[in-house]
Write a protein that binds this DNA or RNA. Structure first.
Length: 155
DNA sequence: GCCAACGTTGGC
DNA sequence: GCCAACGTTGGC
């Protein structure tokens, strides 16, 4: 069982979008970066937990917890020319991009903001707080996961 | 295979 | 809106 952090821009897809889905479950499409793809395709399993992170917004930070409920399968939005993330180099016979399904497990009453994470000595090694990190899928160490959970003040 | 140009991410 | 970081593209 692994821990992850998954970024989404709230203007595009926020935690409330996910909360409004049937069974609070949805696919996580649009990953178009090889490192991120390799993480979800090779290392992510059903039952893994991930922080839902709001990026590129007024208050970037972790806003809740999601659970992986389906392991990687081809991202069909790459096949559709109408889609924003269409990629002609991916086709159903040889899919290049993959996605997983996630279910909302918990929305924090108060998110853990990036600036608060940055202020934590014990979280300095997180890839999230290191400069220039643009990866949308990041592994999180168990100790870091627990530390952030404590910062929420919830169980 | 090198590397300049270009595009995207994302915090600030 | 700015800009640093960094991934991708394409000419050579």
């Amino acid at each position: 069982m692994r821990y992850w952090l998954m970024k989404s821009e709230p203007d595009v897809y926020s935690i409330d979008h996910l909360a409004g889905q049937k069974k609070k479950t949805d696919h996580w499409d649009g990953i178009r970066n090889y490192q991120a793809r390799n993480f979800i395709r090779d290392d992510m399993s059903v039952g893994d937990l991930a922080f839902f992170y709001h990026s590129n917004c007024d208050e970037p930070g972790i806003v809740g917890i999601i659970e992986i409920v389906r392991s990687a399968y081809p991202d069909h939005t790459a096949f559709d020319p109408e889609e924003k993330y269409f990629d002609p180099k991916s086709d159903p016979d040889h899919p290049r991009w993959f996605m997983v399904d996630v279910r909302l497990k918990k929305k924090f009453r108060r998110g853990v903001l990036l600036k608060d994470i940055r202020a934590q000595k014990k979280l300095q090694k997180m890839r999230l707080v290191q400069r220039g990190n643009r990866l949308s899928i990041l592994p999180v160490a168990k100790a870091e996961w627990n530390h952030i959970l404590r910062m929420t003040g919830e169980d």
